[in-house]
């Protein structure tokens, strides 16, 4: 049997969950014996294979239309979708924005930030995606495995990936279910 293919990507997150993934240290060698790591922010390939992967992993919440596109593409191309970390599972830190609204947050960051001068303006290029209320990945596409944590521990990530590599549906509970 061919090794299951795994693709990962990040949305509105801090990359911390991917850093935690790398924290599995030398176990990554064992893992790579079991899985074929395809696209990810830490490999050269940036998009999941058109003919699909077995496992898709998304870090980060949905904050704009671009995040939505990435999530939808990943869902279309993977069999099992994992929401990795509190932002992907709950909305997380970016969801703080919902309490004040995107406009106020953009104004605070681009106009009122202490380091800005008078020329500061909110980026408005039509090429840019537009903001949406921050939501978890599961509000846009169906998620099969939720692995919360800020960030999930390397052990939790390894446990879930090892299960998936062995063709087992992981159960996120007990020790590895820690939202922080």
């Amino acid at each position: 049997m061919a090794k299951p293919k795994v693709a990962t990507d990040w949305l509105a997150g801090c990359a911390g969950c991917h850093m935690s993934f790398l924290d599995i240290d030398e176990r990554i060698v064992d893992l790579l014996k079991l899985v074929d790591l395809r696209s990810s922010p830490i490999t050269d390939l940036k998009e999941p294979d058109e003919d699909g992967v077995d496992v898709g992993i998304l870090e980060g919440g949905i904050t704009n239309t671009y995040n939505e596109e990435v999530a939808i593409k990943m869902r279309k191309r993977c069999k099992i979708l994992v929401a990795l970390g509190d932002c992907a599972v709950f909305g997380g830190v970016p969801a703080m924005r919902n309490f004040c609204g995107a406009d106020a947050a953009l104004k605070r960051a681009y106009i009122e930030a202490e380091s800005n001068d008078d020329s500061a303006k909110i980026p408005s290029n039509p090429e840019l995606s537009t903001t949406v209320p921050v939501k978890p990945v599961s509000d846009v596409v169906k998620v099969d495995v939720f692995l919360p944590g800020c960030a999930p521990s390397a052990d939790a990530i390894f446990a879930v990936l090892a299960d998936l590599a062995n063709g087992k549906m992981p159960e996120v509970k007990g020790e590895i279910n820690n939202w922080h």
């Binding site: 929401a83 599972v89 709950f90 909305g91 969801a95 919902n98 309490f99 004040c100 209320p133 939501k135 978890p136 599961s138 509000d139 998620v143 939720f146 692995l147 919360p148 996120v172 509970k173 007990g174 279910n177 820690n178 939202w179």
Partner: peptide
């Protein structure tokens, strides 16, 4: 949080009500 852990909750089925 402890109660949620005890029930093995690992996600929220409902969108939070963002009223500050």
């Amino acid at each position: 949080q402890n109660a949620a852990y005890a029930e093995d909750m690992n996600s929220w089925p409902f969108t939070p009500h963002y009223l500050p």
